[in-house]
Design a protein around this nucleic acid. Sequence first.
DNA 1: GTGCGCCTTCCAGTCGCGGGAAGGTCAAGC
DNA 2: GCTTGACCTTCCCGCGACTGGAAGGCGCAC
Lengths: 163, 163
Amino acid sequence: MNIGAAARRSGLPPKTIRYYEEIGLLTASRAANGYRDYSEADVQRLGFVQRARRLGFSVEECRQLLSLYSDRDRASADVKAIALEKLAEIDRRIEELAGLRRMLGQLVESCHGDDRPDCPIIDGLAGDGRAGGGLAGGGRAAGAADPAASAGARSGTSVPAVR
Amino acid sequence: MNIGAAARRSGLPPKTIRYYEEIGLLTASRAANGYRDYSEADVQRLGFVQRARRLGFSVEECRQLLSLYSDRDRASADVKAIALEKLAEIDRRIEELAGLRRMLGQLVESCHGDDRPDCPIIDGLAGDGRAGGGLAGGGRAAGAADPAASAGARSGTSVPAVR
DNA sequence: GTGCGCCTTCCAGTCGCGGGAAGGTCAAGC
DNA sequence: GCTTGACCTTCCCGCGACTGGAAGGCGCAC
């Protein structure tokens, strides 16, 4: 099976499949003409990665999950641990966004939104000190309770677009 | 004021301030020795951008907000429109994450997490068809009701880390 | 004069791809 | 046999919003 067919069957664009091969996430055998050649099992793995990505797992996490996938002696606890951590990450991200939403919502609510220049949103951003929320300076954003020993990451948890 | 002092007062790292200058978001005058020199008004603008970024506005949106900030004839409606759109974006993102959370939560719940290899999480990712949620193939993720004519973007809404 | 901390520029890397160029391959149609 | 078009290959560049580091200049205290 050529890459195009594998792409249609797995839901991943050919470019992405090549990228995954380049970074060593997946492999593909080659036909005599140099074309990549995918087996049914390959397509299975491609679909596996596609679904894992759509659930919010990073490519590196997909690597771990793939290795567990093909490990017949895995402990489901190992899989669950990864999933639980991702779940916690998603929760943190939701909390963070909820905090943003709260602050921005307050500003928006207090703004008349007419043709006059007076604007509490601008004032809040300008840091006049009257900002209620966490807009001050050194503070932590919002919602997130703990310093969050977040895994080296800036806030992201990005997921591929569905098309 | 040198860049270091401006950085401490605005909450932005010097690297970021230079970057903002490079992309034309802000400007800085230069002292005789070639050092960047920041006025009080400059520091105000830096803080403005810092707070806007922390609220989830992209750098391009910060550009618009800055221009409204320094426009004495602005209509607060213009500011509010930007903020409302951002609010909607945040809401979409939260919905999307909530959908992920739901699906992943279901998988996690159904996994015993012991030392045996049987694992509904792996099975779900492997696409055995028994996946309840939106893991199938061509479908839309979860939560998001509408095709979402989302502004050219893949899911992101990233916010700078607070430190 | 020498050490330290600050400043400057430039280059490279991050993450997960997408776009597009330049060229090879294959099957269908004439 | 020849062309056409769809497919495939590799390669490099770009995104957003920075961060890290190298190499070198400046300012001030000791």
